[in-house]
């Protein structure tokens, strides 16, 4: 008997669905999706906040009062000023300054850009890699499938932090290395999810019909299998973006992630950590709040997406 047989069927900690929706007027699936999503005000709020954060990150260089990496704009005399202090040039540091005299608000906006860039970028790459492998495994089946799934199981049996640690220990710091580590940590989740729903889809008649028509493989996989795997894929991708951002912050906090020249939120928090015990909380605290709001807003969106998209899966 293998351990898989003994594994308990765990009840998923899913939220109760939003049951009892009656049939409504003619609606496109997309419209219905939007209206079901909008049913949760808190999820809509999460989405709005996340979009605002994204815009702020993309246009950081336009919004930020200061370019925190232009040394000419920094004044070491302004180091570790509390929030609301005036700078030597007469401008107000809304969130205070760090030990280099860097405006925290500007630092956070630039840091957001790196955090979001790494998080979203790695999630996208992992999504492409993992989805391709999952579709491939489901379509080919047999030994290839078994081999890929073994790898997925092995990968998932080790905690994400450990895998990332191993990779960065070998490769060293750097934005690209962090992205690579995150991709390696995440691809397996996509593969598992996509393979599962692709297998269900595969047995449907229209795929068999497509095969009988001798359509090219690639076309069957991408035009027929993939679209049907999208709902769970969207849910997983949202969750993974939040996880990637959190993991990147953790790695950077530990000093294994991004280099000091491209500080993400995690690194900003780490830089301020030593001053926290002496009461200069703002250097760590505000980047921390930015990180918190980002992660929570993504999760709010993700939770609602899961609730909305899940029932459709079962149908």
């Amino acid at each position: 008997m293998s351990s898989a047989d003994t594994a308990p069927k765990l009840p998923l900690p899913l939220r109760e669905g939003v049951g009892g929706r009656g049939p409504v007027r003619e609606e496109t699936p997309f419209r219905r999706f939007v209206s079901e999503f909008a049913a949760s005000h808190i999820a809509v709020a999460g989405l709005i906040i996340f979009v605002l954060i994204g815009v702020a990150a993309i246009f950081a260089s336009l919004i930020a009062p200061q370019n925190p990496y232009d040394l000419a704009q920094l004044d070491i005399m302004d180091g570790r000023l509390p929030p609301g202090s005036a700078s030597s040039t007469g401008y107000t540091y809304l969130l205070g300054t760090d030990d280099q005299g860097r405006d925290m608000l500007s630092g956070i906006l630039y840091g957001l850009r790196i955090s979001l860039g790494v998080g979203v970028g790695s999630a996208l790459i992992a999504c492409v890699v993992g989805t391709s492998l999952g579709l491939f495994a489901a379509y080919i089946g047999g030994r290839t499938d078994a081999a890929i799934m073994r790898l997925v199981d092995l990968q998932l049996s080790f905690p994400s932090i450990l895998v990332a640690l191993m990779i960065l220990a070998v490769l060293g710091k750097g934005v690209m290395n962090v992205v690579l580590a995150l991709v390696i940590v995440e691809w397996a989740y996509y593969t598992r999810t996509v393979r599962a729903s692709a297998l269900v889809e595969r047995r449907r008649e229209y795929i068999e019909a497509a095969e009988c028509l001798a359509l090219p493989r690639r076309r069957i996989i991408f035009r027929h299998l993939l679209p049907n795997c999208l709902p769970p894929l969207i849910v997983i991708a949202t969750q993974q973006v939040a996880r990637a951002i959190a993991l990147e912050a953790t790695l950077s906090f530990l000093g294994l992630g991004v280099p000091i020249t491209e500080p993400s939120l995690g690194l900003l928090i780490a830089n301020g950590y030593q001053y926290m015990l002496s009461g200069k909380y703002w250097i760590s605290f505000y980047p921390g709040i930015a990180l918190l709001v980002t992660i929570v807003s993504i999760n709010l969106v993700g939770d609602q997406l899961r609730d909305v998209l899940n029932p459709r899966l079962k149908r």
């Binding site: 939040a242 959190a246 928090i269 909380y281 990180l291």
Partner: peptide, 21 residues
């Protein structure tokens, strides 16, 4: 939900800030 999604190090910092500092 917060317990699931907040990074451990961040919560640790908050714990230190509140209970130690």
């Amino acid at each position: 939900i917060l317990g699931f999604s907040l990074p451990t190090f961040w919560v640790g910092l908050m714990l230190i800030m509140v209970f130690a500092v």
